[in-house]
C-alpha cells in the first residue's frame, strides 16, 4: 500500500511502535520477551548464525512461546561479538557480549527461565542515541 500523506505515515508509525516499545522502554502489551541478535558481517563472522540457531533450539526445548528473536545490525562492539540483547517486559534491557552457543543456551535456561544474569558476559551500553 502506497502512503500518500504524513497523516498516513503517522498512523503506520503508531501501529509499529508496539513492535519497538519493549526494546526502548521495557513496555509491552503482549507480555513477549524479545531477543535482539547482531547479525551484521562482523557478528556473523564471529559466529552469530550458530548463536541464533542455539537460541532457537533452546527456546524450543524449554517450550517457550513468548520469546521472539529479532535480527538487527551491529552495535559497534566488535570486541564482544556476537552480541545479544534481552528485553523483558517491565525490566531494563540487558546486553550480553561474546555469546557463543553455550552462552546462548544459558541466556534461555538461566536469564529467561531463572532470572539469573550470566556473569562475565554482561556488556554495558556506552552511548546515547540522537
Amino acid at each position: 500500500m502506497a502512503i500518500k500523506s504524513l497523516e498516513e505515515l503517522k498512523k503506520i508509525r503508531e501501529a509499529s511502535k508496539k513492535k519497538v516499545d519493549l526494546r526502548e522502554k521495557g513496555e509491552s502489551t503482549e507480555g513477549m520477551t524479545e531477543i535482539l541478535i547482531g547479525m551484521a558481517t562482523c557478528g556473523i563472522a564471529a559466529g552469530a548464525r550458530e548463536t541464533m540457531k542455539a537460541l532457537y533450539e533452546a527456546i524450543d526445548e524449554a517450550g517457550l512461546d513468548n520469546v521472539r528473536i529479532i535480527q538487527v545490525g551491529c552495535m559497534g562492539y566488535c570486541h564482544s561479538e556476537p552480541t545479544v540483547q534481552v528485553s523483558q517486559p517491565s525490566k531494563a534491557p540487558v546486553l550480553y557480549g561474546k555469546v557463543d552457543e553455550q552462552i546462548a543456551r544459558e541466556i534461555i535456561t538461566k536469564h529467561i527461565l531463572k532470572d539469573e544474569f550470566i556473569d562475565d558476559h554482561l556488556l554495558n551500553k556506552t552511548f546515547v542515541k540522537a
Binding site: 502512503i3 504524513l6 505515515l9 503517522k10 503506520i12 508509525r13 501501529a15 509499529s16 511502535k17 513492535k19 519497538v20 526494546r23 526502548e24 535482539l36 547482531g38 551484521a40 529479532i70 535480527q71 538487527v72 545490525g73 551491529c74 552495535m75 559497534g76 552480541t83 540483547q85 556506552t126 552511548f127 546515547v128 542515541k129 540522537a130
Partner: peptide, 29 residues
C-alpha cells in the same frame, strides 16, 4: 555522552529487513 550516535542511531536496535521498525523510529517522516 561521549558517544553520541546520530549516524548509527538505529544500528543494532532495529531489524533492518523490516521497514515498519524503521518507521517506528520516525523513519520516512
Amino acid at each position: 555522552q561521549k558517544q553520541y550516535r546520530i549516524a548509527l542511531r538505529n544500528c543494532g536496535f532495529i531489524n533492518p529487513e523490516d521497514i515498519e521498525e524503521y518507521i517506528a523510529f520516525n523513519g520516512y517522516e
